[in-house]
């Protein structure tokens, strides 16, 4: 997983509540065998017209928001299904940070598992950040995870909360797997002890293994 330290980027405003996982990535794209490649279908229903052409009114189809790495939106972002395709689609589009007054629980957790920083801030602040975002590439936001603050284009800054453990994981670029692998010695020790004391435990070995 890529580290998340400081992100200076264009932010796209999405002033809507309850943007659900089906909007983020419609169900028909879930039969995929990959987690990469979902970005082109992120927000597909709003992003494309029926004939497949781009809808010029949708924010992520406009410059500079095509290159947005931050989303600023309203309450209950990511509600709906528990599948991980939603954060995969955002990440593949290039989004590394989502700012909203509230998030759906599972989506919130899934973000951290995939290197995306979700930030909860009061609605008035989200609205103010959306005004900044509306200024486009002249008005990039800087998200400093170490200092837990967002620097606004006017020089002011906004502080945010984040769970200490998750902050550590993002800054170090550790996913859960990376974190667990730091306990490799304990895992290997557990396996050795088992093999010694409980040698009856069978392994699955196929004569004609593929």
């Amino acid at each position: 997983m890529d580290r998340f330290t400081t992100l200076t980027a264009v932010a796209a405003p999405m002033p809507a509540e309850n943007i659900d996982t089906d909007q983020i990535i419609p169900a028909r794209f879930l039969k995929t065998i990959q987690r990469s490649g979902l970005g082109k279908n992120a927000f597909a229903a709003q992003r494309y017209n029926d004939d497949g052409s781009e809808n010029p009114d949708f924010v992520l189809n406009r410059e500079p928001y095509r290159h947005a790495e931050i989303l600023v939106t309203l309450d209950n972002f990511g509600c709906g299904s528990s599948r991980e395709h939603a954060p995969w689609a955002l990440l593949d589009f290039g989004i590394r940070c989502v700012i909203a007054p509230s998030f759906a629980d599972i989506f919130f957790n899934n973000c951290f598992k995939n290197g995306i920083l979700p930030i909860r801030l009061p609605r008035e602040i989200c609205e103010a950040l959306m005004e900044d975002a509306a200024l486009g590439s002249n008005a990039r936001l800087t998200v400093d995870l170490q200092a837990q603050c967002i620097h606004r284009p006017d020089g002011s800054s906004v502080a945010f909360e984040v769970d200490g453990f998750r902050k550590h994981m993002l800054i170090e670029g550790l996913d859960d797997i990376g974190q667990t692998l730091q306990h490799e010695t304990a895992i290997a020790g557990f396996e050795r002890k088992r093999a010694l004391e409980e040698s009856w435990r069978p392994n699955i070995v196929m004569e004609d293994a593929s």
Binding site: R35, R83, E84, N114, D175, D176, I177, T180, L181, I187
Partner: peptide, 14 residues
Amino acid sequence: IGTSEVEHVMATQT
């Protein structure tokens, strides 16, 4: 388990 966890078990057996 979910897909991230499937990968977690593949890589760590935990």
